[in-house]
Design a protein around this nucleic acid. Structure first.
Length: 580
RNA sequence: GGUGCGUUAGCGAAGUUGGUUAUCGUGCCUCCCUGUCACGGAGGAGAUCACGGGUUCGAGUCCCGUACGCACCGCCA
């Protein structure tokens, strides 16, 4: 046995005990004939003291050496309040080097100077640091809570295949060439969607899985190519049942990890979320909802507004209180550039202070329209109004992005707040410019709203579904839907998506067939674990909560993956790499 | 696919209108030190300035390209 205690557990009450500790040398302080070593393991740090007669033992010991130490627990005269073990030290009698270490390329401490790419290359060193290690521990704690709560409610965990079948709708698949079937490919699952629905048909009425998912799409600060979902599906259930179950899980997680009990789960329809927040994942930790002020400017002499409306566009407005002094001309130049990212042409603003207007459109707008705006928005001194006149979709999204950015910069967001919202009744379809047709907004197994069944084929733009998201602090935490559970309806949706009978048979044949053998009504969700842990641990970087993450270009800097493979391997798979 | 920013000792950064020995902090090595806990003190080593090309008498600095990293838009059923 290399140790009988961890480096995080000894306290004053252990004084006098003879102990054996093992760990990494986090810091060596040599004061001449006395040497202090901070010994670190997963559980914490304990100071080891080598007095005059023992200091030679660690003469050649350096940072990050792995050592085993025996000694006696002793109470310190000057305790170190920064350490949980700070009231004691271990006075060493022996020291055995279990492993030596080269000088590390980065400082291993809570505050490291290393940039992210270096930390990814030496991820095993980065994981020794508390900020990363603690998040891995939190992640384990959360999945443990989730499993317990779901098990209490009779859900069972079932594993579904990683080697799966490519699906045409949605994200690009990661493909795995088959050796036994020349020219054929497995696909890694984007989610266990079809398998879990088949489990429902198989009578496993309450299923969950901590499921790894893969999507070959470009990355973001909150998106990795492989990620983990808490995947849940339940039969004989609808929105109310699944919302209740998810809320129960979230309440348990927040109570047991953060001590937070007063969570609420308001519901917002998708169209309202877009209207008020310009996003289907609104950050509702703060207000500043957007308003539609189009009607005030229909006959405006300000041609920019009037022409936008004439061309079918709208004018969205957003108010920030007491912000006149905080938002400079320069800031609005910056915001003008910012909204161009979202294809908006410009952002107009009016400041109302000391009962007078000023700002970019102050001269362009006639007095009566400014007064009307003031009444409509109930403006008070100090208010700043921002407006975007554009096509509806652009004005909403661009001003919604401004809402979030300015709120952050003005400090309107309470970082200690956790604001959930269910976003409901998503569109059934969205138009894909790229493909020139309507595609599923969620996925093709999503049920339409009862009242929209007759719009499935003929009025796709106005057809809404029983899909929902749970949003937390502006992140999409989960997605789900009530599923279609009869083959006629399913066939109708495939038809609406423009899939031919042959495509349906090839891609979904087994799935469709299953629905002919008695499918229960069912619904479910997939909760993004990484985003949940990000929010719980207060980081905006998904890489912080993944043990071995990939870069923004989906590269593993540590393992150097993806990599080329031997010709033999290609030959086995009957694959040839094109040289162009 | 697109936009922006970045790349200088092991690590993190500075480097002015282009100018001759590239600076600072930290880490590393050696020596001194019995109460430190970011120990302290003295000394030392350590750089093809990402790569390729160009402009120039002269490039870390200016220009073009490439690679890599980060963020964002598109994309992510």
């Amino acid at each position: 046995m290399n140790r009988d205690h961890t480096c995080g557990e000894l306290r004053k009450s252990d004084a006098g005990k003879h102990v054996k500790l093992a760990g990494w040398v986090a810091k060596r302080r040599n004061l001449g004939s006395i040497v202090f070593i901070d010994l670190r393991d997963r559980y914490g740090i304990t100071q080891i003291t080598f007095d005059e007669s023992h200091s030679d033992l660690v003469k050649d010991v350096r940072n990050e050496y792995v050592i085993e130490v025996e000694g006696t627990v002793s109470v310190k005269e000057n305790p170190n309040p920064k350490l949980a073990t700070g009231e004691i030290e271990v006075v060493a009698e022996s020291c055995k080097v279990l492993s030596s270490a080269k000088t590390t390329p980065m400082i291993i401490a809570d505050e490291t100077d290393a940039l992210e790419d270096l930390r990814l290359k030496y991820r095993y060193l980065d994981i020794r640091r508390n900020p990363i290690k603690d998040k891995l521990i939190l992640r384990d704690k959360v999945t443990t809570i989730v499993r317990r709560v779901l098990h209490e409610d009779d859900f069972i965990e079932v594993e579904t295949p990683i080697l799966s079948k490519s699906t045409p709708e949605g994200a690009r698949d990661y493909l795995v060439p088959s050796r036994l079937y020349k020219g054929r490919f497995y696909a890694l699952p984007q989610s266990p969607q079809q398998y879990k629905q088949l489990l429902m048909i198989g009578g496993i009425d309450r299923y969950f899985q901590i499921a790894r998912c893969f999507r070959d799409e470009d990355l973001r600060a909150d998106r990795q190519p492989e990620f983990t979902q808490i995947d849940i599906e339940m039969s004989f259930a609808d929105e109310e049942d699944i919302f209740a179950e998810v809320e129960k899980v979230m309440k348990a997680v927040f109570k047991e990890t953060k001590g937070i009990e007063d969570l609420s789960f308001p519901r917002i329809k998708y169209v309202d979320a877009m209207d008020k927040y310009g996003s289907d994942k609104p950050d509702v930790r703060f207000g500043n909802e957007m308003c539609d002020v189009t009607s005030l400017f229909e006959n405006s002499s300000f041609s920019v507004f009037a022409n936008t409306i004439k061309d079918g566009g709208i004018i969205k407005a957003l108010v920030f209180h007491n912000a006149c002094d905080k938002l400079s001309r320069k800031k609005f130049d910056e915001l003008t550039e910012f909204v161009k990212i979202y294809k908006a042409k410009a952002i107009a603003y009016l400041k109302y202070d000391k009962n007078e207007f000023s700002g970019s459109v102050n001269n362009a707008l006639p007095e009566n329209e400014k007064e009307a705006l003031k009444d409509f928005l109930k403006l008070e001194n100090g208010d700043v109004v921002m407006m975007i006149a554009d096509k509806k979709a652009i004005a909403q999204v661009a001003l919604g992005a401004v809402r979030k950015k300015v709120a952050e910069e003005l400090g309107l967001i309470d970082k200690n707040k956790y604001a959930f919202a269910w976003i409901t009744e998503f569109p059934m379809y969205e138009y894909s410019e790229e493909e020139g047709r309507y595609v599923s907004a969620h996925h093709p197994f999503t049920a339409p709203r009862d009242e929209d069944v007759d719009k499935l084929i003929d009025d796709k733009a106005n057809c809404y579904s029983r899909a929902y998201d749970l949003v937390l602090n502006g992140y999409e935490l989960l997605s789900g839907s009530v599923r279609i559970h009869n083959s006629e309806m399913q066939a109708k949706v495939f038809d609406a998506l423009g899939l031919t009978k042959e495509q349906i048979k090839n891609k979904f044949g087994f799935f469709i067939e299953a629905f002919d053998y008695g499918a229960p009504p069912h619904c479910g969700v997939g909760i993004g674990i990484e985003r949940l842990i990000m929010i719980l641990s207060g980081t905006d970087n998904i890489k912080d909560v993944v043990a071995f993450p990939k870069t923004a270009t989906a590269y593993d800097l540590m393992a150097d993956a993806p990599s080329t493979v031997d010709q033999d391997q290609l030959d086995f798979l009957s694959l040839q790499i094109r040289k162009d």
